[in-house]
Design a binder for these strands. Structure first.
Lengths: 322, 322
DNA sequence: CTGAAAGCGCTTACAG
DNA sequence: CTGAAAGCGCTTACAG
């Protein structure tokens, strides 16, 4: 049997017409020999690598792990394999950048990098490789898949307002992260919806880290007529905020309530257990992969905001003000 | 200029002899055209993909994120790119397995999967693809790079013994994880070194999770003549153990001391802050990559245990027994 | 010192 | 229905 027929049979080419017997022989031989096509040879010929690149920031937080896992699984189910690149190096236009963008190693890129406006991101648009921004909106710059962070944060605010809190402060993320800006918007709209208008001193920007939350909460809780509740923009900063309250001799939730953003197993085991907004992170990663695969296939795609509603997980870190 | 010379100049082929002027022209043209060789074409010809596969388990824990990050950076600096595969799917011999093992997509594999004796792992040895086991020893099965988990755990035990504890219990990991077995061995040797011999009821196996630690600690702390200190085999189980103590009305560290294994930013912000053993995880990942690259290059390699000593980070979760 | 040729392992028009 | 041929973009002996 010639290699042409073999290739077509093995690839289920619908245009092939082959005698059932020949097909059987090919299939049997392939099985007997454990034949698996060489991905690089195939990639060279078809100009499809069946590989997706994932550029992502700090892995130390469970949130990003959810994204990797969701993306990896969805990619696998679409026949793709996932290449991972560190955002820091990528964004500095290092080797990872060159390798993913120009060596034709990937058919498309998922960019989950958190900060905004880097030169690299701009390069992308003047360049034919399809890409999708994950958890990150940047109008005018290609397709993005993101969550309704605003609704999530507003939900946390409403929960606290319903408990009777009025002086609700916000530990926001870093201003260069668009997720931080959208969570801040959610804080504002949540306050407004509850008839509250926060003083600007009630909003403090901080990195998405324990340390960031600690420092921000310390300054917030040291202020005169301090807040009775802190809505934070990440899980890590909520942990830091609770630690800061304790360090000041304040009890959570008796003296001050704290909410986090995103959920992870540890939230339930903290002291007190953390009330937090659970966002559909895995779904976001899956949709991002599907969107990218569509783009690669030539589909026109639009931005998508994951419609699945955020869920507020109420635990011990929030209570009525005393 | 012919493509042969071009290729050799661009690849710095030492055997090429070329007029300086020609070389200049080639270099200038490459620069002007932003030329980057097609990785797949090169891979097809050279039979080197310059890609490494990383098979790893549950990403939800910061520990594994350290491994990815260390591996990714080291791979990048060696000119490699990192493909990621989910251990669950891989170990069940799913598509990821086929793709990484047989499609010649990678030059070698880093296996950081935690459990032991899977069929897939055995397949590997009857198969020419170089691989390195990361954080996981399996005698007779290829090269592994691991940490001195035993010393780390013994260190935690000695710290508690020095504080005056005698009834030190161990929340071990799952018995099918060799890291768990080595930490258990460290617990035993640490106890012996301090003249203590624990009753077998002082050792409880549990998954490496908050929940696992919670359940194990609950049973341990409900027992008669309960332990005054718990040495756990992971960060997550320490968090769970502290929660269990609280749930029983016991204070950490006044009634019971707790130690974790591995460090992450959150440990410092827990209540109380967690005493834990910091292991050189990133170094392990880097050495694993270097070892794998050596193997790919045909070097004979031996198992390596990272020599860098574990460090005990003493925080508020341990104190003298009251 | 430089270039033409072969070939890596596939897929895909195309001819028989 | 089946197979021979070209070609994807490189690298590497080899010939000039």
């Amino acid at each position: 049997v010639g290699s042409s027929v073999t290739s077509r049979v093995l690839n289920d080419d619908p245009t092939v017409s082959v005698r059932p017997e020949t097909r059987e022989r090919i299939l049997a031989a392939a099985l007997a020999l454990d034949y698996t096509p060489d991905a690089f040879a195939r990639g060279l010929k078809t100009a499809r690598t069946m590989t997706l690149g994932l550029v992502l920031p700090n892995l130390a937080y469970a949130v990003n792990a959810e994204i990797i896992r969701g993306a990896e699984r969805q990619a696998a189910s679409k026949g793709y394999v996932l290449l991972i690149a560190d955002a820091d190096e990528f964004v500095q236009a290092g080797d990872a950048y060159r390798r993913l963008l120009f060596e034709r190693r990937v058919d498309g890129l998922l960019i989950a990098s958190a900060t905004t406006g880097s030169r690299v991101i701009k390069d992308l648009s003047s360049q034919p490789l399809p890409f999708v921004l994950v958890n990150r909106r940047q109008p005018g710059l290609g397709v993005n898949v993101s969550l309704d962070d605003e609704a999530g944060t507003a939900m946390a605010v409403s929960h606290l307002a319903a408990l009777g809190h009025r002086r609700i402060a916000h530990i926001a993320g870093p201003p260069d992260a668009d997720t931080a800006r959208r969570r801040l918007a959610g804080y504002r709209s949540g306050m407004a919806a509850n008839g509250l208008r926060p003083a600007s001193s009630m909003i403090v920007a901080a990195p998405f880290s324990e340390r960031g939350g600690f420092d921000a909460a310390t300054s917030l809780l040291n202020a005169p007529s301090r807040a009775t509740a802190l809505v934070t923009a990440s899980l890590a900063s909520a942990v830091g905020a609770m630690a800061a309250a304790r360090a000041l001799g304040l009890s959570v939730p008796n003296d001050v309530s704290v909410t986090g953003f995103h959920d992870a197993p540890i939230a339930e085991y903290l002291h007190p257990a953390l009330t937090t907004v659970r966002m559909p992170l895995r779904e976001m990663a899956e949709v991002a992969v599907r969107t990218l695969v569509g783009l690669i296939g030539g589909e026109a795609s639009r931005d998508v905001t994951i419609a699945t509603a955020p869920v507020l997980i109420t635990r011990g870190s929030t209570a009525a003000p005393s």
